[in-house]
Design a protein around this nucleic acid. Structure first.
Lengths: 191, 191
DNA sequence: CTCGACAGTTGAACTAGTTCAACTTTTTTT
DNA sequence: AAAAAAAGTTGAACTAGTTCAACTGTCGAG
């Protein structure tokens, strides 16, 4: 069943009993999306935290010059949300778009608060997950500053081969922060 | 007393009783550092989480080409640590250096674990703090991609006037990810 | 108070990456 | 199967930011 992946994801971060895992999963509701469909649109309030069971998403923002900046991709076993908008109920700067037909598990705000209250260990779980996320963002920033576009490209495709094989070059360029023309030239050039 | 700032920092994130705040603060021990002293050196394991009571720090890494990338600055009321190294007891990639004579409050790993166990609400507190940190890192990445060096410079000095006034231009350039020569040219050019 | 060590400035040559435009290839829609 | 739309390629001109080198200003240690 589709909740096994979610349980495994939680278990990677904290050792939880099968019954507790079951209880937590009750709060998450499945939703399917067609390719290109938006789970969240810039300007809307993000009313969910989501976990990808199947498929692939792109989380991006469009700046005032019309450039698309891809914050990250989320394939199977990744989390998906605008935490800022979800926590503060403010309009989101982000778009979350399915890149292929996909399935997610969603929890809404009221249920998330209830989940924290009912099972305090969930606070620990998400504390650990959030701290790991901070580390990942710090490392990404360092890579952006000390690697060239070419180095960043190879780091990405080698670190996430299964995700990158699903993506168009335009999407990858948007993630690396370079033009898709330049990515094309990188790929042509010798390694 | 120096714990008031720490209590206020916690209270910004979660409403806690005065006695609980007092109990939590017991775990944090003061330490003073002289200008230029290192609180953490690249390669060491980070054995503390720290909170700046007075002074200013620079958290940076040196890549294999010798470039210094400044991850962030921490002045009064900021947190200070390598979470990755602290959580996993792995050698840190980061240096934490006092930019002036400074005072910090530190908690070590065993005490942090004890703190979580003794006061489960501290999990919620640090869950919220970590989630806010994630949001801040995401926004920084977006700014790095969609703003020019000049725009990033003015954003920084306007957002953190009290921190930036303490910093050398070299330190600011390291934070913005540009050469200090180019920052000098930015400052000379008309706004 | 002065000497040495940094911090900042400036200019010239350079380079990583952008932009635009034209073209080809692949994918999607009908 | 054809048409339309989107993705990828290539080249030429450009620009934001780097690098190096020489110079100037500042400030803390003796």
């Amino acid at each position: 069943m589709s909740y096994e992946l979610l349980k495994a994801n939680f278990s990677k971060n904290l050792d939880l009993s099968p019954t507790l895992l079951e209880d937590i999963c009750q709060y998450f509701k499945p939703k399917t999306l067609k390719k290109k469909e938006l789970l969240l649109r810039q300007g809307q309030i993000c009313r969910f935290e989501g976990f990808v069971v199947e498929g692939c998403f792109r989380i991006f923002t469009v700046d005032n010059k019309g450039n698309e900046i891809t914050l990250y991709f989320a394939a199977e076993d990744w989390w998906l949300m605008d935490i800022d908008s979800f926590m503060n109920r403010t309009p989101s700067d982000l778009n979350i778009q399915a890149l292929e037909d996909s399935e997610v598990l969603l929890i809404n705000r009221a249920d998330k608060i209830d989940l924290y209250n009912s099972f305090p260990v969930v606070e620990k779980l998400f504390r650990i997950m959030s701290q790991k996320a901070v580390v990942a963002w710090q490392k990404r920033l360092i890579r952006n500053h000390c690697l060239t576009a070419k180095e960043r490209y190879f780091h990405f495709v080698e670190t996430y081969p299964s995700i990158s094989s699903k993506l168009t070059d335009r999407a990858i360029a948007g993630y690396l922060g370079i033009s898709h023309e330049f990515l094309s030239k990188i790929k042509k050039s010798q390694r």
